[in-house]
Design a protein around this nucleic acid. Sequence first.
DNA 1: TTGTAAGCGTTATCAC
DNA 2: GTGATAACGCTTACAA
Lengths: 337, 337
Amino acid sequence: MNKAGKPTTIKEIARKLRISPSTVSRALNDHPSIGLVTTMRVKKLAEELNYEPNQTAIFFKQRKTFTIGVILPKLSEPFFASAISAIEEIAAEKKFTVLLGQSLDNPERELNIINSFRTHRVDGILMSLGKNTIDMGFVERLHKYEIPIVFFDCVPENIDVPKVYCDLSTGIHEAVKAFVERGHKQIALINGPETLNATGERTFSFKNALLDNGLTFDEKYVVYSELTEESNYKAMEKLRALDATPSAILAFNDYVTFDIIKYAKENGISLGRDIQVISFANYSLWKYMDNPPLASIEQYPAEQGAKAAEILFEMLENKDLEISIPDQILASKLVYQ
Amino acid sequence: MNKAGKPTTIKEIARKLRISPSTVSRALNDHPSIGLVTTMRVKKLAEELNYEPNQTAIFFKQRKTFTIGVILPKLSEPFFASAISAIEEIAAEKKFTVLLGQSLDNPERELNIINSFRTHRVDGILMSLGKNTIDMGFVERLHKYEIPIVFFDCVPENIDVPKVYCDLSTGIHEAVKAFVERGHKQIALINGPETLNATGERTFSFKNALLDNGLTFDEKYVVYSELTEESNYKAMEKLRALDATPSAILAFNDYVTFDIIKYAKENGISLGRDIQVISFANYSLWKYMDNPPLASIEQYPAEQGAKAAEILFEMLENKDLEISIPDQILASKLVYQ
DNA sequence: TTGTAAGCGTTATCAC
DNA sequence: GTGATAACGCTTACAA
């Protein structure tokens, strides 16, 4: 800071020391060719004047911003909150800063954020897709601009781009096995909207898991919910209307489970005795509840975010935009509370 | 993008159109002095070449980055997650991007983040202090650099700086009143560590609320916890050891409440009948629980974040770094689930 | 209405 | 070991 109230610049230091700006620059960067004395003098004055390099100038010159952008559907979702938390920690280690954008599942917002990130010249992007994203054209555009992007959790299909996601089949298998071991024969799945990938994935693995455990798969035991309370209740009613009412339910996520718990309470169903539930984890407060699900399928948001960040930083360090990185698939796991 | 694979620049457009870069710049920025025809030609070519202004150059030149930094203790805390979520939405409206840093309650990390933000030349900072921050010297430093900062939720005392926080006294008064109306005479407070401001504030308001409701204040009914499960249990035991066991407890936060619930379960205490609890909200899932607290004192994280962001943007627009802005105090409120 | 030129702060290249 | 100069891409007086 100088008397004019403006940040000190290299030029100023140079003027005061009657040496050239380039010498100052080199001295500050410990360039070997600069004499020890000069270096010391420069550093001393820089200290005194509270010199701080103007990063915007450096960014501009070096075409690198030491910044990564992270795009998530919603930050207030615990799942994404812990992902971003992990990402920020890794970025901080690497001396990178994190630009943040939330899409709120709106494809238009997603594109706006990406554009904003691009004009901010972020060095790379981490992204978890919103539910409604169809057009993936932006991936190619980013590639043209040589901005690497790594997807995690909600990742695009059929595009050769680095991805980190959780394989639900392992957790679903464990869940069904746990149910079977407890003697359940009628196992249902309350799934999400049929349009979601996550939904198809669950149905697929659920079917396999049933067959692998010596049960038959009956479509009727898979009901689809729009994930509103009303829709979740309807799903429960559909299941209760079946000839052989299921005694075990795999729920799309914890929010569905909450509604199942509420529904059960209101309808005199005893959770744990009449019906057992296993859920996909977003919350982890079950231990405080009286009627928690039997277990949860953990999808490791922090680990996914961290892994994605690591891959991104590796790409940034090696400039290997072209080599295609194999999908990083974390196994989901059944976790008892 | 041009054939060299580099982003198109204004110079390139100028060269191709055989006009000067300044004309191109002006045309792209709809400068009134440029003829309509020229403007159109420029814009058309810019479009064709996928021209995108290099923001790093603009940031550098204009000494403004359209970026705000947000510093929070921990992103995975639902309280802060919803604050940042609200902040991001407001920033997006203003076409600002959000730089993110989490202090993890570590003062050193806080300073690192602030330095990083400063070198990134953020236009302003929003911050919620970590629990252990003592040295507030950075505020003055930021002031010198003319970087406005607005605090929210966990704000510094005795410093003239814009602050947004929630006044707990209103909620605590309502809580005590609610207890009294239900016939409770022995009301306890399980408080946080004595070193925290938040703790002193609660004691202070709790005392006043008791007196205002015609009860007496007895220090023994305020116990301090380190907020670990063990410490929370000890707090409960202290209360149970009192001559007149409290029938109502005000809990420092929802985590404490969770432990109270757990403790009660394990010790055959019926929540709701033997003991009623009111908590300070960080989670909002009580409706799904069997033994929820009677009510929660809501502190409106999203509103606090939003308000702080608004103040910051106002400061940025008016460059009014000097006028001191009166504290923005939101009333906390007792909310029944 | 348009062009010229300077400058933002830093660093890389070349020269001495 | 140090200095001069140019360059990054854009904006903006000032000139024309």
